[in-house]
Simulated assay, not measured.
Amino acid sequence: MKRNKYNLVIIEILILTVIALLSLTGCTKQEKLKELKIGEYVMQDTEPEGMSYILIEEDHKFKFIRNLATSYLPMGTYSIEGNELTLYVDENESYVFTIEKDQLIFKSSNVDISQFVKKGAVFKLSEDKQVFLYDAYEELVINLKDMGYTIKAEDVEKSILLGERKWLTINESDNISVYLYESNKEMEKDASYISDDGFSYDNGREAIMIDWVSYPYFFKSENMIVLYVGDNSDIIHSLEELIGPQFAGEIM
Rank of each mutant, 00 (worst) to 15 (best):
Tyr149Arg: 03
Gly230Asn: 02
Asn223Gln: 08
Glu240Leu: 02
Trp167Arg: 15
Ile176Asp: 09
Glu186Gln: 10
Val156Ser: 13
Ala191Lys: 11
Asp231Ser: 04
Leu133Thr: 10
Ser192Val: 14
Tyr193Met: 11
Ser200Val: 06
Val131Cys: 13
Asn223Pro: 07
Ile236Gln: 10
Glu222Trp: 05
Arg205Trp: 14
Phe123Asp: 10
Asn232Cys: 03
Gly148Trp: 09
Val213Arg: 01
Ser214Trp: 00
Lys220Arg: 09
Asp231Val: 01
Leu140Cys: 01
Glu164Gly: 06
Asp135Lys: 08
Asn223Gly: 07
Ile225Cys: 03
Val213Glu: 08
Val141Met: 01
Asp234Lys: 05
Leu239Gln: 05
Asn175Tyr: 12
Ile142Ala: 15
Asp231Thr: 05
Ser238Tyr: 06
Ile160Trp: 09
Leu227Met: 00
Tyr179Trp: 02
Ser200Gln: 07
Leu161Ile: 09
Ser233Gly: 00
Met224Asn: 07
Ile194Val: 15
Tyr181Gly: 09
Phe132Trp: 06
Ser173Tyr: 13
Lys220Ile: 06
Ala136Gly: 04
Asp155Tyr: 12
Ile235Ser: 04
Val226Thr: 11
Glu182Ser: 13
Lys129Ser: 15
Met209Asn: 10
Leu140Arg: 01
Ile225His: 01
Asp197Pro: 03
Asp190Cys: 12
Leu140Met: 11
Tyr149Met: 03
Leu140Asn: 01
Glu127Cys: 07
Leu144Gln: 11
Ile208Asn: 06
Arg205Ser: 15
Ser214Asp: 10
Ala153Arg: 06
Asp190Glu: 08
Tyr149Gln: 04
Asp202Trp: 11
Met147Val: 13
Glu154Asp: 14
Ile151Thr: 07
Glu154Ile: 14
Ala153Gly: 05
Ser159Arg: 09
Asn223Phe: 02
Leu168Cys: 09
Asp196Ser: 14
Glu240Thr: 12
Ser221Cys: 07
Val131Pro: 02
Leu162Pro: 05
Glu164Leu: 10
Tyr179Ile: 04
Glu206Arg: 11
Ser221Met: 13
Leu125Gln: 12
Tyr217Val: 00
Ser173Asp: 07
Ser173Thr: 13
Val156His: 11
Glu240Tyr: 11
Leu239Thr: 05
Ala207Glu: 14
Leu162Cys: 09
Asp174His: 10
Trp167Pro: 04
Met187Val: 01
Glu172Gln: 15
Tyr217Leu: 00
Val229Leu: 00
Leu239Arg: 03
Glu182Gly: 14
Asp231His: 02
Gly148Asp: 03
Leu161Cys: 03
Gly163Leu: 01
Ser195Lys: 04
Ile142His: 13
Glu157Arg: 15
Glu157Ile: 05
Gly230Phe: 08
Phe199Ile: 06
Ser159Val: 08
Tyr137Leu: 11
